[in-house]
Amino acid sequence: MNKDKFESGFSEELFNIMLEMIEEEKLSLRNAILLLKHVGYCNVLKDVWNFHFEKSLLNKRFEKMIIEEEKKKEEKDEKHLAYLCECFISLSFDFLQELILICVPSLLKVTSKKEENEETQKEMEMALLALSNICYYFEIKKEMYLKEITEIILYHQEHHNLTQLAYQSAWDFLINRFFSDQSLEGPNTNELHFVREAIKELEELVKYICWKRKEERRGEKEGKEEYILIEWLQLWQQRMKP
């Protein structure tokens, strides 16, 4: 599925209808969050600049829920907060500074896990991919993330606990910070073996391009998951109309 089809499938109206379904208990908040996690995941993977979520009432609801959950402190549900942040960050392109201060530490906690089982790897991949969606022009103090993201990258270089996409996303997040904080360059890139890793990534990219060309020649079916998501949401959209 191309970018235009994906973007048109998730309209402002559709997100507003999802909020209405949640409020009328026709769709549980838990299921809505799980669905939006996957929508956001596809959104970042396809590099879609979709502003429909930002304009929606559902976006405002997520902003409010994130701030309220963070204020709970002792009673805070860290997993729920991380899921909310993941949805919000992966579907948005403009964030209040207050929300960045909440979401970046929350998602970094998810990515600091050392387990190598498939479920944990997927959770880490989705969280790191969401973090990579924070554009370079957002200034984030290095005290908030540098130690954690450095540990994540170095641990993977030794133990290979991340998926390829998760590892690339960790680098994307860090490199985006270079634009607003030049003090990160030099010693940090040397410690993280930037040149060596860049060469490896280029080699992987060449392999991927060759594989992709072979798949295209065989006429691969792509975008099946995105089509199912859109069809499901559009079905509910039709049911909600008077």
Rank of each mutant, 00 (worst) to 15 (best):
A130H: 07
E98G: 02
I140S: 07
I100D: 01
T111G: 04
E69S: 09
E143A: 15
Y137Q: 05
I149G: 00
K114C: 10
A127R: 06
E151D: 15
I140L: 07
L108S: 00
E148V: 11
L58G: 00
T150I: 06
S106T: 09
K60Q: 09
K79F: 14
L99S: 01
Q157Y: 09
K114A: 08
S92K: 03
K142M: 08
F178D: 04
I153D: 00
Y167C: 10
I175G: 02
L165S: 12
K141T: 13
A170M: 01
N117K: 12
L146H: 05
Y137H: 11
E63I: 05
K71I: 04
L57R: 13
F178I: 06
R61L: 06
I100A: 03
N176F: 04
L107P: 04
L96R: 13
S106L: 06
Y137W: 05
D94H: 08
E116I: 15
L108R: 03
Q168M: 13
H156I: 09
P105T: 12
K76E: 11
M124C: 09
C85S: 13
E143T: 13
S92H: 03
K71H: 11
D172W: 04
K109P: 07
V104R: 08
S132L: 07
E151N: 07
E143V: 14
E74H: 14
E98T: 04
K55H: 09
Q121A: 13
E74R: 15
I153C: 00
C85H: 05
F93D: 12
D181F: 09
L174Q: 00
L96I: 08
N117S: 12
F88W: 03
E68G: 10
F138T: 14
H160F: 14
L129A: 03
L129F: 11
F173I: 01
E115W: 06
K113H: 15
E119N: 10
E148A: 12
K147G: 10
K71R: 14
Y145I: 01
L174W: 00
E125A: 08
C85V: 13
T111V: 09
K60W: 02
V110F: 05
I67K: 01
M65S: 06
K122G: 14
S169R: 05
C135H: 15
L162F: 04
S169Q: 03
E74G: 14
I102M: 00
C135M: 14
E143Y: 08
L184D: 03
E86W: 00
T111H: 01
S169I: 00
I175E: 08
L81N: 08
E139R: 13
L165Y: 09
L91C: 05
C87H: 03
N176V: 10
M144S: 13
K55A: 08
K122P: 13
H159D: 13
E74V: 15
K114F: 09
L107Y: 01
A127K: 03
L154S: 05
E123Y: 11
E148S: 12
D181L: 11
E119R: 03
A166N: 02
E63F: 01
I140Q: 07
K113M: 12
K72E: 15
Y83G: 14
Y145L: 06
S56T: 03
